[in-house]
């Protein structure tokens, strides 16, 4: 075991009905860090998180979570891990405080009342404590879900797309909470689709089609993608036409319109420049070379990896 690794797994594999959803995944998450877990829909993020917390049994592979074997010590892992499900999974017909009391009792918490009121305070839920969970809006539900999974003071948080469908303000508050928890020593593995959220993580891991494609700090992942990118500004009605022409040229790996600008890039700088050359002298276009974004890096990675799901993805 690497010293200070909260999660360390090797060769995790899981199939459903003959389809490999997670393929020989190896991952290490250092203690006290926030790792962003990224990847397209159906790439195996949820399945991986479920294997880590004992909800699913891997077909093969091994590993530890907080130093406990994920294959044989799932029950002990459950006591020390907080898992926030993608779909709201608390009782809508119970109030906030009733939900938290239930969880506190299941975990057999000493000083349950104090810990529940602490969690309520921490997430600003105290004023709404008597409201039924089902009546809460998305942002408040998400706070309640977070309160529920940190109530038993876990050492590791597994968050499955916690901010899906939540407004920007609530997302920002949520991330402030996550950083606060990490500062207290909690390790966090959080899956997300939002690039701005990925950039808030200490580390990111990117998976597609069940395979780990990149990992490390954000800057490193971008640098390793080795992309050259340009922003081309054109008349608004010409952008779509230009995009069509550029798409598919050798060396042009990504073409994305942003309003009246077009973002193009590729992994092979020479080829990219050669393909773009005929358009560079067009006076109607304004060229600017910029640095690749994380999103560019991911779309590039995705394009490179082969799709092993001929029947469409599963989550």
């Amino acid at each position: 075991m690497t010293p200070g690794a909260a999660i360390e797994v090797e060769g995790l594999t899981k199939s459903f009905a003959g389809r490999v959803v997670v393929d020989r995944l190896s991952l290490a998450v250092p203690s006290g860090r926030i790792m962003g877990f990224l990847g397209p829909n159906g790439s195996g993020k949820t399945t991986t998180l479920r294997m880590l917390c004992g909800l699913l049994t891997p077909d093969s592979g091994r590993g530890t979570c907080l130093g406990l074997d994920i294959l044989t010590e799932a029950q002990r892992i459950k006591r020390q891990v907080g898992y926030m499900t993608q779909r709201f999974s608390l009782y809508e017909d119970l109030s906030i405080v009733e939900n938290l009391d239930f969880i506190g009792r299941v975990f057999g918490l000493a000083e349950r009342r104090r810990k529940v009121s602490q969690a309520l305070d921490r997430l600003g839920l105290t004023a709404r404590r008597r409201q039924l969970a089902g009546e809460l809006s998305g942002g408040w539900k998400q706070r309640l879900a977070l309160a529920a999974c940190i109530l038993h003071e876990p050492r590791l948080l597994l968050l499955d797309e916690p901010t899906a469908g939540v407004d920007p303000k609530a997302r920002r508050d949520f991330w402030a909470q996550i950083h606060g928890l990490a500062a207290d020593g909690m390790t966090v593995l959080v899956s997300t689709h939002y690039m701005d959220e990925a950039e808030r993580c200490h580390l990111i891991a990117y998976i597609a089609y069940g395979r780990l494609l990149a990992k490390g700090p954000v800057a490193q992942v971008i640098a390793e993608a080795g992309l050259s990118t340009f922003t081309i500004t054109a008349a608004a009605d010409k952008v779509a036409e230009l995009a069509d022409r550029l798409t598919g040229l050798p060396g042009v790996d990504l073409v994305a319109p942003f309003g009246s600008a077009l973002h193009v890039g590729g992994g092979d700088r020479e080829q990219l420049l050669a393909s773009l050359a005929p358009y560079r002298d067009n006076p109607a276009l304004v060229w600017r070379e910029d640095s690749a974004t994380l999103e560019d890096a991911f779309i590039h990675l995705m394009g490179k990896s082969s799709d092993n799901f001929s029947n469409g993805p599963v989550s």
Binding site: L55, K78, R87, S89, L90, V106, A148
Partner: peptide
Amino acid sequence: ERGTMENLLVMPL
């Protein structure tokens, strides 16, 4: 059906 099973299973019950 309500999705609360997942939360129930992840707890040490």
